[in-house]
């Protein structure tokens, strides 16, 4: 199996590469690339993302043909794709970080700043928080409810259709921390930084 981590200048992806390399060793071919042809021909895609919604959306659009290729892969051909952090946020129609910016529009919804109740909750939401599993998700196989995952973000994805939500986490409100819609998977937390339990999420994705 060939898995591609999309390298689209979306900030620091070293940790994503390191953890996927660790889990993939001996069973999956891993490629880190922005080459459209390689992305087209692979079996699974990982879409990382750090920095702001706007900078990631701009970077996706900067690579000619990338957005269409991803859409063919994930929406038309329904092959597995995992978005991490801002990578997940990219699924939305629109984001409001820095400026109103269009997302990929794969899962109807918006990305807006966490309501921190007038400073009662510090932002960014940084650190380990428990996930509350809302529905069975393939990437949570053998993962217990209330497991700890590592978060770093100030914005949250609010999908219109709540049935896509696979887990939430409690920080000022129930924040969406993972989604599953058919072949589309996304985590707001960083599985690559979430110790052994995070590596298990990655393993589950690679084993799909």
């Amino acid at each position: 199996m060939n898995v591609t981590i999309v390298d689209y200048q979306s900030g620091n992806i070293s940790s994503v590469i390191n953890s996927f390399t660790e889990v993939a060793r001996g069973k999956v071919n891993l490629e880190v690339t922005s080459d459209i042809n390689k992305i087209k021909s692979c079996d699974k895609i990982v879409l990382p993302g750090q920095g702001s919604f706007k900078s990631c959306a701009d970077s996706l659009n900067k690579i000619s043909g990338l957005v269409d290729t991803l859409k063919d892969f994930a929406i038309t051909n329904k092959k597995p794709l995992l978005g991490i952090c801002v990578g997940l946020q990219m699924f939305a129609d629109v984001g409001y970080e820095e400026a109103e910016t269009k997302g990929l529009g794969w899962i109807p919804g918006k990305v807006s700043r966490i309501n921190n109740q007038k400073g009662k909750f510090k932002l960014p939401h940084i650190g380990w928080n428990e996930i509350e599993i809302q529905k069975e998700s393939k990437i949570f196989k053998d993962i217990k409810n209330k497991s700890h995952m590592y978060f770093v973000h100030s914005y949250e994805f609010i999908p219109e259709d709540k049935s896509v939500i696979s887990a939430t986490t409690d920080y000022s409100s129930k924040i969406v921390c993972s989604v599953e819609k058919d072949n589309l998977f996304g985590t707001q937390f960083h599985p690559e930084k979430s110790d052994k339990i995070g590596l298990k999420v990655i393993d589950n994705f690679l084993n799909l």
Partner: peptide, 11 residues
């Protein structure tokens, strides 16, 4: 300022 703009405040 420059670093947080370039790499994101999170880092």
């Amino acid at each position: 300022k420059e670093a947080s703009k370039k790499f994101g405040s999170q880092c």
